[in-house]
Design a protein around this nucleic acid. Structure first.
Lengths: 210, 210
DNA sequence: TCTATTACTTAACGTAGTTAACTAAAGGAG
DNA sequence: CTCCTTTAGTTAACTACGTTAAGTAATAGA
């Protein structure tokens, strides 16, 4: 039985090698430079060899991004110990911004690129599990805030609140990624903008504290 | 002298014909379907003929989008009659969302696609002129709100405030465009999210009214 | 020893954006 | 009227990309 096991491991290793090459290309040469041919060149295989390990380029990049977004969700776990849900929300926002700035290409692939819908089975991350799904973690925090009646009394929907917070922070990150060197506008430091968005949003969504 | 004039007009006409073809392809077949070859086919020219009228595909699409964003800025002029700057701000947000939803491909090209920086001379729109530059109109409204001391006393920078509002609304629109049919999340109606973002942001940025 | 599977390879296809080289028409100058 | 330049196009081709088809060497099991 050791033979099947070894094959499995070898297969997993080359998969990781491909992902690693793609990750390096992202980091070194940017989004457009990640082509199947360049990945293949980097690992010294023919371009078509990749198709034995990934269905297509989209699946490859999705697997790559799943790893990174999984890491984000796990990083969020260290935020979980912040007791106050509103403060935790603020920290989530800040951590999310840092993630987006650190992985602009992954962020772009995941959230800035329209793509035909994918079934949940295509992702290695478990939907709804806060330890793997960053959105689920955000939502759980919002739910805690709702349970503590920290939000305005007319706001009761955790899903809506989560999306609104996410969308606003996403706007800061994605504009930064897409238009950071656009001459049309002289941009404020992105972290300041993000902090103000989160702060103003929290003020506008929560009850006034006594 | 009539001859140079006529040539100029003819040249302008075919330019418009190219832009019109591209616009139709955007509307009928979506972002990826707008190729130089398809545009050429539509106007019954060879693909290379387009390069006589536009430097490259990016310049073509930029000209196309400039027209649409110019129309947005002019539409904003009808909002200018709203006297209260905060109410005007709310209406700007709503109009901007409607624009983004009505022109997702133009929106995507303009604000969701990283691109090497362009000089202002490449755009037909006049930067800083609220009648042509939608961002300038937003900023003017914010400045009016600042002059009326409607914002929190610790917020004084019109540029920062404008960017924060824009970024937040952009987040709602761009996530809708990129991920509207993603199974991972069950999205709230986009207009509701946008309204809540703008409302919460205004609450969080302005002074409490007496 | 034969056979099927695994993990690749090379060759090629179709679609892009773009450039090079050529050409027909039109206008002005002598 | 003729010559020449400019304008506005053409066809052919180049490069790059994602992807598929067909073939091949090694390996494991019957």
């Amino acid at each position: 039985m050791g033979v099947a096991e070894r094959r499995e491991r070898e297969r997993h290793e080359i998969r990781e090698k491909i992902l690693e090459a793609a990750r390096e290309l992202f980091a070194e040469m940017g989004y457009e430079a990640v082509t199947m041919r360049r990945i293949a060149e980097k690992i010294e295989y023919s371009p078509t060899a990749i198709y034995f390990h990934f269905h297509d380029k989209t699946a490859l990049l999705r697997a790559l991004c799943d790893e990174d977004f999984g890491a984000l969700a796990r990083h969020f776990q260290s935020i979980a110990r912040i007791i106050d849900p509103i403060e935790r929300l603020r920290t989530i926002g800040s951590a999310y911004v840092e993630f987006g700035l650190a992985h602009p290409n992954q962020y772009r692939f995941m959230f800035m690129t329209p793509r035909p819908p994918m079934g949940p089975e295509e992702s290695s991350l478990e939907k709804g599990n806060p330890e793997e799904d960053a959105y689920a973690f955000l939502k759980a925090t919002i739910e805690e805030g709702l349970a503590q009646k920290r939000f305005r009394t007319d706001l009761k929907d955790a899903e809506l609140l989560s999306q609104v917070v996410w969308e606003a922070v996403h706007g800061v990150i994605s504009l930064q990624i897409a238009k950071c060197n656009d001459g049309w506008i002289t941009w404020h430091p992105v972290r300041e903008s993000a902090a103000l968005v989160v702060d103003a949003l929290i003020r506008g969504l929560t009850r006034e504290r006594a």
